[in-house]
Amino acid sequence: MTKMHLTLTVNGEAVETLAEPRELLIHVLRERLGITGPHIGCETSHCGACTVDMDGKSVKACTIFAAQAQGAEITTIEGIGTPDSLHVLQEMFREHHGLQCGFCTPGMITRAWRLLKENPTPSEEEVRFGMAGNLCRCTGYQNIVKSVLAAANELNTVKEAAE
């Protein structure tokens, strides 16, 4: 199949690559761009391990075609924070043990990152439902919910202090 010239912004950097139009975004990210934070879990958009942020929305990268990502702005876990400069969400997932095997963690945090932009002061119930598109088989979610709530609290404290 003819490859298309794909131009997109990933984690703030303009990138170009050749990809088949029907190639999935997750494969473009992982195999062509070497971005392996988003994981492949179910390949049918149910588990959320491949969650990335695309043009301000949480999407499952395993059901987005490369062609749909043309010109898009993508943020993956790598763009949210680095070991030297962790995002508050990342710190909270570490501190509150919001992870075990870690396979769902990048997608989970990427979803939580968008959730807190959609709703900066979520209730516990809102976090549980807002994260329900991302499966975790290890933690029983309790510490994931705690991590997200702690991060929301932290971000709001910082915001209030700034105001």
């Binding site: 934070g37 962790l86 990342q90 570490r94």
Partner: peptide, 19 residues
């Protein structure tokens, strides 16, 4: 004590076999 790979997990830098 936090999981030894926690920092790698939260930044997407923990390598699994497919990585």
């Amino acid at each position: 004590v936090a999981h030894d790979s926690a920092e790698k997990h939260v930044t997407g830098r923990a390598d699994y076999t497919d990585d």
